[in-house]
Design a protein around this nucleic acid. Sequence first.
DNA 1: TCTTTTATCTTGATTATTCAAGATATATGT
DNA 2: ACATATATCTTGAATAATCAAGATAAAAGA
Lengths: 219, 219
Amino acid sequence: MATSTVENYLKSILRLQRRSGSTAVGEVARELSLTPGTVTTMMRHLSGEGYVDYQPRRGLRLTPDGESAALRVVRRHRLIELFLVQVMAMDWTEVHEEAEQLEHVVSDRLIDRMDEMLGRPTRDPHGDPIPDAEGNIVAMEALPLAEVESGMYRVVRVSDQDPDLLGWLDEKGMTIGEEFELSHCNRAAGVLEIVREEAERLQMGMQVAERVFVESVSA
Amino acid sequence: MATSTVENYLKSILRLQRRSGSTAVGEVARELSLTPGTVTTMMRHLSGEGYVDYQPRRGLRLTPDGESAALRVVRRHRLIELFLVQVMAMDWTEVHEEAEQLEHVVSDRLIDRMDEMLGRPTRDPHGDPIPDAEGNIVAMEALPLAEVESGMYRVVRVSDQDPDLLGWLDEKGMTIGEEFELSHCNRAAGVLEIVREEAERLQMGMQVAERVFVESVSA
DNA sequence: TCTTTTATCTTGATTATTCAAGATATATGT
DNA sequence: ACATATATCTTGAATAATCAAGATAAAAGA
Ligand SMILES: [Mn+2]
Ligand SMILES: [Mn+2]
Ligand SMILES: [Mn+2]
Ligand SMILES: [Mn+2]
């Protein structure tokens, strides 16, 4: 019976601790646009509930219980996003906000109906992996376009946080599965260029390339 | 930006004032399983926000603003219920609870998508009228089966509050649109009997007949 | 090491929602 | 009309979530 506030905290912590395995009060505060004091109070609470390990000034991490609770919310979020795109024909730019609300109230029954209707999918509309009902998730090792060498690549994931970015990518056809060649990459100038079908060129800035994840195309 | 708590109060008041045009603190308290004191506090608040007219000890009623806010929630609730039955193939016994949650968080965009997908429907799965986007609602003057004379009738609406009742009705094929003949009605014994295709008979108690609404079949 | 900056923590206050218990008004029955 | 029952109201307290501002610890720089 975690409240939606708690569910959002857990999801944020899961995100933030992905890198180093742990995170800090300040990072959570920034991520959720709250004051550090507010987060400290909540960490004491979550620690008491057994969701996080929290040592004042030493950082925090999810307990196994906290992690599975967080994965459950992530699963719901991503299934809902895919449902909204696939079944409701909504745009991939707008489903994140909607899922952000629905993830807290949709029943397990309905989630399972969606899962079934979608054929037990493993990726959401932005390429993020969907954890299964037990919380198992396939690791993704795609790299940001900003960090790879010249060569042939395929878009496998894009950040779903910024609707403007998603809108632009959609307009340019840079959706999941799209293949292209990375031609130039001028890190100093902060610009890079890709080439697609019929020698069509496309430039983008590093902030954008930082949010588009690709895998190398063997062919 | 009414909170879901407020939305639930408004919906309850709309229901309760349907009869006499107004209602009382105690009735709202009973309906929502709250103490009278809690409701009094909320009525002061809703009155301040311009949603209800509240004179202490003299009862309360929705203002025009309150009524349209309430109708908006009712519209969402019923559209969601129909969507869950029609599109998600859920059972009419379980959609009420689900809609009770979803009605507060689904975006206008998504509601409109459902409305469109369902072909701008006017009745929910239990036969209740769905207000249009402006809050217009077609009045229903169906009578409870418990209050009509012998004759031919058609089920046009059933109370959606009790899943057990819905389950039994479904099992017996007493769904919306079903036609039958009311043969006996022993009000004293609290039992009545109906006859359908092939002389099939079905008895039910008054508490049940009180919750099944019918209209007379001319033929 | 000493100073400054940054991160984190603590405290006191606020808003929303609710209940328990006691006070008061209204309705009912004789 | 008077006593009793019922409905409603008031008050005081609790919980969840949050912020502002001031205190303190840790990190970074000189
Ligand atoms: Mn998302
Ligand atoms: Mn996504
Ligand atoms: Mn309902
Ligand atoms: Mn209904």
